[in-house]
Design a protein around this nucleic acid. Structure first.
Lengths: 130, 130, 130, 130
DNA sequence: GTGGTCTAGACCACT
DNA sequence: GTGGTCTAGACCACA
């Protein structure tokens, strides 16, 4: 399904969340499709079931999936998710922090700006090739 | 000097580092100027001295400051710091992650792009007004 | 007969029970009328027969229906059911918990009160229009 | 601090959440006050630390508390919490379900209505005596 | 089989 | 000391 990066500073359950969101938002996992069961995925990634469940729980809380005990977990209707302004602001701060880090690392403002533009353009192109 | 946000998920020592870098990179604390002593700052921010110590150690490791034993810690020549490619790549990943988060939160690609552009432009304007 | 909400946190058998009770108490299914067989209903709702079986068993236990072996299951005389004080107390706790949740969600006491009154009034009106 | 009801159908972590919310909303735990540490409370209630942490995490997510790793968890400014319409609707459904259950249990509409009114009035009186 | 809860106990970073 | 993450493995209700 996807791979974990054990060297990443991101925790395992966060990686699972991000990877799943990616699959859902890009439509690889369409609405209503069934996610691998907690046990399946935990075995597949060789991590503890609790870790997967933690990720699934968070995904459910954010409205990406819904869970039917005894039957499985399924992709929700993501188009309904309404942007949460508070969260967006947090992410904005995160991005601003990242941008400033580039400056701290010794880049000029214009170099940093260019890097961010490149990141977005690369992302845009990769989306178009889906 | 600056304020801490005790409710922030960022750890205190990270906040100290970021604030210090900000002051240094923007020139508020020019090269050679003396930083508050660990004790002074810890008292000022009412945090544990160990926490300030840790922040200063990291700042020194990254080349932003240097310590003159018995005299204090001073701002280094920041223009010398060479961008560390590995670190830049990490920050790039962080920014990309943030950008994708905007999408996950329900924004369209163009909305997310616009937000990032606004962040950078705001930052640019604030720098010009320094 | 009725629809299930597969995304609901309520389990399927609970949904079946509640829907059946609704039909019985409102008189849509009058005393003595025959319920769909387990197989029929399970096919109709595309759920596992065991699930329907479990719901019927619970409904019988509570006195809403009775089974005539080999002939089917029928609506019992509901007017005979005596309120079970223990159960009523449980439901009262549930309602109190819900009411407090409204407060936790940031509503004032009066707002919460008004909401509950509206719920009951709406229910009352819909009953009158049966 | 409070007691758990091990016979309750509510899970332990839900009970912890509800009890804490109660203490916070009623002002027993004012803004900024420190919650018992995960370990303390787990020992106090003789439950596993993970269970307490699960509760604390949820409380944080809902904005009732904030957490400062290494220092403890603290009561947040609850007045800021904005009612979440989706959640309110869920609670409304819950209350409606409870109300209907009273009817199913054999009460008349007016009896059920009176019970709910009594619940709210009792709650109101107990608040006034705080 | 499915998800949900819980225990016991470990390791980590931060204060 | 604090909270955060994770493993290993148990028990439960539900389908």
């Amino acid at each position: 399904m996807f791979q974990l990066d054990l060297t990443s500073p991101k925790s395992i359950y966060e990686q699972v969340i991000d990877n799943m969101k990616e699959l859902i938002v890009t439509g690889v996992m369409p609405e209503g499709s069934r996610l691998p069961s907690v046990r399946e995925l935990s075995k597949d990634l060789t991590v503890n079931p609790n870790t997967i469940q933690k990720a699934y729980r968070e995904l459910e809380r954010e409205g990406f999936i819904y869970t039917a005990s005894g039957r499985g977990t399924f992709v929700a209707d993501v188009s309904v998710i309404k942007p949460d302004d508070a969260k967006i602001q947090n992410v904005e701060k995160e991005i601003l922090g990242g941008f400033r880090s580039l400056i701290y690392l010794g880049l000029s403002f214009d170099e940093a700006k260019k890097i961010v533009e490149t990141i977005i353009n690369t992302e845009e192109r990769s989306k178009r090739n889906d």
